[in-house]
């Protein structure tokens, strides 16, 4: 029991943040037209690429002679960047197609 209370006490501000963000997330997505589900999923996919920050941090703390950690961290940063860049670019490509093209569709 003590363990749980200590845990809550030590991390109280982050716990508040988590709870609030859960509801923000629900509010943001709740009333979205189904047309946008795929781009949104892809956009959210890019946003969780923020895990890259952690990878940079952890690679920044690896000792210079600790080859194993340097390699693992290096891979971590690469895949994290892949997630970010790939995610945003794919989403942009999807959304690019939603822009209106006046006249073009009607004639041709």
């Amino acid at each position: 029991m003590d363990l749980i209370f200590n845990f809550i006490g030590e991390n109280i501000s982050m716990i508040y943040l988590v709870i609030l963000m859960v509801f923000v997330g629900i509010e943001l997505i709740g009333h979205v037209p189904s047309v946008l589900h795929t781009p949104l999923m892809s956009g959210a996919n890019a946003i969780h690429g923020v895990v890259l920050i952690g990878a940079i941090y952890v690679l920044g703390h690896a000792e210079e002679n600790d080859t194993f950690s340097l390699i693992v961290g290096f891979i971590g940063v690469i895949v994290g960047t892949l997630n970010v860049i790939g995610g945003f670019v794919v989403t942009d490509r999807m959304l690019e197609m939603f822009k209106k093209k006046p006249g073009k569709g009607a004639k041709s």
């Binding site: 859960v22 509801f23 923000v24 997330g25 629900i26 589900h37 959210a44 969780h48 923020v50």
Partner: peptide, 17 residues
């Protein structure tokens, strides 16, 4: 906090989606 917010945001928005 930026990792926490981004992560939780996607976690909850993704679940709703």
């Amino acid at each position: 906090n930026v990792m926490l917010m981004g992560g939780v945001l996607v976690g909850s928005a993704g679940t709703i989606l």
